[in-house]
């Protein structure tokens, strides 16, 4: 992390160039689980971004006074509490969507993305900067979720955000929904395809050969 990067870069870098999901492959469990429709993907993204920004702010605020020996526990307690609060708010005000997200909101606690940002960035940076970085990472995660969610909902159910785009056979139209799209493996395939596409367009993101399997490196060069 360059020490003097501008705030704008801190915000926009995680969108594509340092995307937490496609480059660092963090937080993919939830990316698989909640992307069956755009609405759930959006809610999950908003919940994760909110938790990320608030936990980054709080941890950055007390960063000089977190004892080293218990720093991970302190961070997890703060993140977990924020997650429970967000989950309660969703259950109160977005009841239907919170039913669909079921446990995945609670599982934000264990999302490597959150702890990764608080541990590597918020502990060393002032609150304002930490929150901008957290917002950028949250948005980076959201972009990936919304892209995968759109593809899965469009091809799995023929709709986008609940609005029917393709008339399915059940409704008397022509489109046979691709059930695979509603199952978790399809999210893996899509995520893999997305990572491949980004790394083809931006070769700098590809891991260097010495990070790959040492079996037959010459085949890959």
């Amino acid at each position: 992390m360059p020490a003097r990067a501008s705030l704008w870069n801190t915000l926009t870098d995680p969108l594509v160039h340092q995307n937490p999901v496609t480059l660092q492959i963090l937080g993919i469990c939830s990316a698989l689980a909640v992307t069956t429709s755009v609405a759930t993907a959006l809610t999950m993204s908003a919940a994760l971004t909110a938790v990320l920004v608030m936990s980054a702010g709080l941890i950055s605020l007390i960063r000089n006074h977190i004892p080293g020996s218990i720093r991970l526990i302190v961070q997890i307690v703060i993140v977990a509490s924020l997650v429970i609060v967000i989950d309660q708010i969703l259950q109160a005000y977005l009841f239907e969507i919170s039913q669909k997200l079921s446990v995945f909101v609670s599982l934000i606690t264990t999302n490597c993305l959150v702890l990764g940002r608080t541990e590597s960035f918020s502990r060393h940076n002032p609150p304002g900067r930490s929150m901008v970085d957290a917002l950028g990472n949250g948005l980076g995660y959201s972009v990936v979720l919304v892209v995968i969610g759109s593809v899965r909902e469009l091809f799995g159910a023929g709709s986008l955000l609940g609005v029917q785009v393709f008339q399915t056979v059940d409704q008397g139209g022509w489109y046979t929904p691709l059930n695979l799209m509603l199952l978790a493996p399809s999210a893996f395939f899509l995520l893999g395809g997305l990572v491949w596409a980004i790394r083809t367009l931006l070769p700098a993101q590809a891991e260097t050969i010495d990070l790959l399997s040492p079996d037959k490196p010459e085949d890959l060069s």
């Binding site: 007390i62 006074h65 218990i70 307690v77 509490s81």
Partner: peptide, 13 residues
């Protein structure tokens, strides 16, 4: 610190 963080988080939750 451990006590304070837990107490404040417990209150919030």
């Amino acid at each position: 610190m451990a006590f304070l963080v837990s107490a404040i988080c417990a209150l919030g939750v």
